[in-house]
Amino acid sequence: MADKKFEPLIVGILCNWCSYAGADLAGTSRFKYPENIKIIRVMCSGRVDPLFVIKAFKEGADGVLVSGCHPGDCHYIDGNIKAMRRETLLSKLLEDLGIEKERFKLTWVSASEGEKFVEIVEEMTNTLRELGPLNLEGGEKIV
């Protein structure tokens, strides 16, 4: 069991049109979720270079959440599909680096799914609390 006091740091990279707006809606609706996630905005989930994810881990994140519009709903037609295709490569990369798969999540949250966003953040925070801090050995070498 991880130390009770351990609070994971999660970096959330969200697309402007759906997921960032969904997170805004969670706020407007005053839903509460753990403070662990820090959100960064990109225009589209397709913008998320696998290096962003690695960078976040290298800077001390214990988990990274990437979220975009549902397939078919991307503001730029299919950037999210491209993000999805990259996920395979990224997961492999993370595995090679010894980063547990629970530490990275790609989800689809629409602008009206404030509640779903809260559930995802809660679940991820709890999983990471259990999993404990990321130990990135030799992490300096990768970027």
């Binding site: 990109v42 225009m43 589209c44 397709g46 913008r47 998320v48 270079d49 503001h75 730029y76 950037g79 491209k82 990259r86």
Partner: peptide
């Protein structure tokens, strides 16, 4: 170009 940045990521 609409600026989504998908090309930059790839």
């Amino acid at each position: 170009c609409k600026g989504c940045g998908t090309c930059a990521a790839t």
